[in-house]
Design a protein around this nucleic acid. Structure first.
Lengths: 218, 218
DNA sequence: TCGCATCCGGAATCGAATCTCCGCTTATGT
DNA sequence: ACATAAGCGGAGATTCGATTCCGGATGCGA
């Protein structure tokens, strides 16, 4: 309960200088290695690239997962920074849009293993997810108040947009760097108030079931 | 080159009856097990659930991956069926939309391991990807001709929409089954012709770089 | 029914990746 | 400079799941 959730850079009792340095080196190496070899790269490569032994790696990060978690934490910091900056520096009617574009750019720097990185956010980090949603909510509310987006939009809709961006960036940035940008542009167009309400899914699903592969427990 | 790409249900020389039956059982069990335990379920579970030994499994599907590939192949069949049906049974102005909704429903039947399933589509199946794009293109062209969607839309935009649906369905269906439906509704709204052109991403990226985690090879 | 090519079961093998252990080294405070 | 707690390296134990192997069973054509 009272356990600090993430190994902060300066926890209760200071680390020895070399230990702190090695921690830094490991994180740097991890970014590098994962970016280069993908999320399935072995920890050994990271240790050697950081110039330290396995023992050191495992003393700083008790599991590979916790290493990933430390990285995803830094990403979250960046994303939060985007939101904060957009909220502070943009007029209320532009802030949401700007925040989404910026977030896209931040994520784009890590395409190829974003999904894995995201998955490493530990469940204990719920507070951060909640904070994320809260910030999205603020931005959304302001945009609504400014009449820039439809009233029916929910925070979840915006969050879903982020999830969509995540994959598109992960899968296509590099090969086709404008795919996610176009998708975001389209979604933003869909966000805007318009004469026509959002479409409903067709409810005629008898046809649909007929289409599901036969080997499947309904 | 001339190698048949996927192990068809009725290949050149017929299998012994029991062999064919076991193949079927294995596929059925695989659907079940993956749906239940997720894509990391061991092959042993599949064999035992199918009531056959490991030897049998590996004679029919030389690798775990090829088993996954057979499943993803069936999904692709379902998706194609959606497209065909939409093209045949809907007026040209509605076909694209209907195809996307139906595809969503088909994918929704496999939430939780869709991404993994998708990843198993072997690179040799390029033809099928191409066919997929071709069909999307046809639907899109018709929709444009009917004035239902913006002229600027590309086939890639629609494909991106499918990729987005895939994650949303995979991640949220079950917990929040309307997330992907709302996203699709929003995207479809964004597809429609409108007075305002699609937004451009802001080009001021100096701010953005300042926001990237420091450990990172620019 | 007989012969045999094909197929079956499942224990043993292989391989890869994580994580542990322990004797040696080094930063730090006095 | 010394004592000591903290940190280090890296070989190898451990684990876990995919794949192979082969003696025995079985469908099928003659």
């Amino acid at each position: 309960m009272t356990t600090p959730h993430r190994p902060a850079p300066s926890p209760p009792k200071a680390m020895r200088r070399d230990a702190a340095q090695n921690r830094e080196r490991l994180l740097r190496a991890a970014w590098e290695v994962f970016a280069e070899l993908g999320p399935d790269a072995g920890v050994e490569e990271i240790a050697s690239r950081a110039g330290v032994g396995m023992g050191t790696l495992y003393r700083r990060f008790p599991t590979k997962e916790s290493l990933l978690a430390a990285l995803s934490d830094e990403i979250l910091d960046s994303v939060f920074a985007c939101f904060r900056r957009a909220a502070e520096q943009q007029p209320p009617d532009r802030a949401l849009e700007q925040a989404l574009w910026d977030t896209g750019e931040v994520l784009a720097a890590h395409h190829g293993w974003l999904t894995r990185l995201w998955a490493a956010i530990p469940p204990e980090a719920d507070e951060r997810r909640i904070e994320l949603l809260a910030r999205l909510d603020t931005l959304l509310t302001r945009a609504k108040r400014a009449g820039e987006v439809r009233e029916e939009l929910t925070t979840t809709d915006v969050y879903a947009c982020l999830l969509a961006l995540r994959v598109l960036i992960d899968d296509t940035e590099g090969r086709a760097p404008d795919v996610w940008r176009r998708h975001l542009a389209i979604v933003l167009a869909g966000f805007r108030p318009a004469a026509e309400p959002l479409a409903h899914p067709p409810t005629d699903d008898t046809l649909i079931r007929a289409n599901t592969p036969k080997h499947h427990t309904g």
